[in-house]
Amino acid sequence: MNRDLILILGVALMAILAGCEPDAADEKPSPPTVASAPSVPSPTPRMYPVTAATRETYQFYCAQCHGTKGHGNGINAPYLTVPPRDHTKADYLETRTDEHLFTAIQQGGLAVGRAPCMPSWQHTLDENTMHSLVSYIRELCQCEAL
């Protein structure tokens, strides 16, 4: 008898509680949490800032293959077996560290397991310039290493 009463009361209580809950359609979206927000480039100042000389260097040497705006469409691009990297696309570049990009510039594509079309610039550019080119690539892709 008591057991039946408790069962009835429990079912009634659940029905009341269920009826109080708002419909899913009426639910207001909760603000996105920090964890689910898209990645935003870090505004922290870089140790090797992009200067006018960095941009000139990019135009003089890199733009032959990577294009004047970094889209990977330089004048050599149609003739290469592997297309030059598009420096404006974050999806790949955010998976690479700054060290990786620096090594690619310094020692060439082969040194980082990428296309051998990218030559080594270690005897042409000084280290600071190569670091600043990494910063410029980060500026072009508007991304940082994840």
Binding site: C65, I75, N76, Y79, L80, G108, G109, P119, S120
Partner: peptide
Amino acid sequence: SCIACHQSYNLARQPRGGI
């Protein structure tokens, strides 16, 4: 990486490379 900027012959003696 010279091929990135210079045309040269491939093994089939066809011109290949950057311009």
